[in-house]
């Protein structure tokens, strides 16, 4: 493990970057900060987590719709 220094992103920052990227939008200043502090493995890991989260959210919404429709 590389020692944690100031330039490294917190988990929350990685999440924020990934979630914005799902929409496909990012502010230039924040992007430039991302480019410095984000590390690729982090982004990939959080990206996969968010994709899973996205799938579960969809399943949940579908579940809501289905149960509403059948009761």
């Amino acid at each position: 493990m590389i020692a944690r220094d100031k330039s490294q992103a917190s988990l929350l920052q990685v999440f924020k970057a990934v979630l914005w990227s799902f929409l496909g939008i990012r502010r230039r200043a924040e992007h430039e900060a991302d480019a410095i502090r984000l590390r690729l493995p982090q982004v990939v890991a959080v990206g996969i987590m968010c994709a899973a989260l996205f799938v579960f959210t969809l399943i949940f919404v579908v579940h809501l719709v289905i149960t509403r429709a059948t009761t």
Partner: peptide, 15 residues
């Protein structure tokens, strides 16, 4: 929006 292009491409790929 270069960076949003990169992000949009990645998210299209995952989705």
């Amino acid at each position: 929006g270069y960076s949003s292009m990169v992000y949009a491409t990645s998210s299209i790929a995952i989705l």
